[in-house]
């Protein structure tokens, strides 16, 4: 009798719990510098987890992923600054421009394959950045900034920062949950089939265009929300930091480091990446060589451990397999 592999281990709740507990620490201890670090870490987790949906599950390498972060950031920021909208409402509404771009431009661009798609997303990112640099209603090259009095409605700058932090933590948790749900749903199976062999997928009854666009849209929602939180806390947004190509590529690095196409991979990858970076920056001897070391590590992972840390752990510790995917 064929035993079907069911979900016998509560993988998702455990992962979410770990992330939630870690995120809760600075709130409980009231440690602002740890809160700052974890804020950034949670942002990276969100970016890596969301890009994994289009790159890991569907196999479409997106260089332009950060464009959704910038669009969400700008959308929400403008609403808060120009119209005095409350952060939470602005963040949700800020998702709209990101989702529109993902759906409309995505539909056109997802017809391309491989390197062509990757380059096209790069073009979209750079075009958006160049455009926003010239777009005066959004502040042009200088961008937009808050009048500090805006934070009053949240009980002051510190409370606003805490609000942004809690929001970011929730977004990260939601992104992980969404990633898990996608992977274990029929939809995820369709994505992976498209990744393996799109032409076979079509003959099997999968609609590639609609499926890919849906994946792209899903991958756009979470960075947009994260962007709203990030720039709300910073109080200033400008094209360079909103549409930073390096950050886009970093999300890919984190995904590969942790394990492409897995749920835990991007989370682990983001955590390890950020820890490494913090370590390199603070160690005086290594600081100037930071990028070089990062490059060497990335190369080692890419050449010798293509299934990332998750793959390595699963291979060396079979007991872990049911707990880590």
């Amino acid at each position: 009798m064929l035993r079907l592999r069911g979900r016998s281990r509560p993988f998702l709740p455990v992962l979410l719990l770990i992330v939630a507990v870690v995120a809760a620490v600075p709130l409980v201890t009231g440690n602002p510098s740890m809160r700052e670090e974890l804020f950034f870490m949670l942002l990276l987790v969100t970016l890596a987890t969301s890009v994994n949906v289009i790159t890991g599950y569907t196999g479409y390498v997106s260089f332009g992923h950060i464009v959704f972060f910038g669009l969400g950031g700008y959308g929400a920021f403008w609403l808060m600054q120009a119209l005095g909208v409350h952060f939470l409402v602005a963040a949700v509404l800020g998702v709209i421009p990101a989702v529109l771009v993902a759906a409309v431009v995505g539909a056109a661009v997802l017809r391309l394959r491989g390197a062509y798609f990757a380059l096209a997303t790069l073009g979209i990112l750079e075009a958006t950045k160049a455009f926003m640099t010239n777009f005066d209603p959004a502040g042009g090259a200088v961008g937009l900034s808050f009048n500090f009095s805006i934070y009053a409605q949240y009980g002051g700058a510190k409370s606003a920062a805490e609000l942004a932090y809690v929001f970011m933590a929730l977004v990260a948790l939601a992104a992980i949950a969404a990633s898990y749900l996608v992977r274990h749903a029929k939809f995820g199976l369709a994505l992976m089939t498209i990744r393996e062999d799109q032409d076979a997928a079509v003959v099997l009854g999968i609609d590639p265009a609609r499926t890919k666009v849906a994946a792209f849209v899903i991958s756009a929602v979470f960075p947009a929300l994260a962007g709203a939180a990030f720039f709300f806390k910073n109080g200033i947004i400008e094209p360079g930091s909103a549409f930073d190509l390096t950050r886009s590529i970093e999300s890919l690095v984190m995904v590969v480091l942790g394990g492409v196409g897995t749920v835990a991979g991007p989370v682990i990858g983001a955590a390890v990446y950020e820890w490494l970076r913090g370590f390199l920056i603070t160690s005086p001897a290594l600081a100037s060589f930071q990028l070089t070391i990062a490059g060497v590590l990335l190369l080692v992972v890419v050449l010798f451990a293509t299934s990332g840390l998750v793959g390595v752990l699963r291979a060396r510790f079979p007991a872990v397999r049911e707990w880590l995917e």
Partner: peptide, 28 residues
């Protein structure tokens, strides 16, 4: 060479890694 037949993401990140190494060393 080692990953020449791997999917795009792998080779892209491999050359990107080289890019980082060169930038890092050169900047230093």
């Amino acid at each position: 060479d080692r990953v020449i037949n791997a999917p795009e993401l792998t080779t892209l990140l491999a050359t990107f890694a080289v890019n980082l190494i060169i930038i890092g060393t050169a900047t230093t």
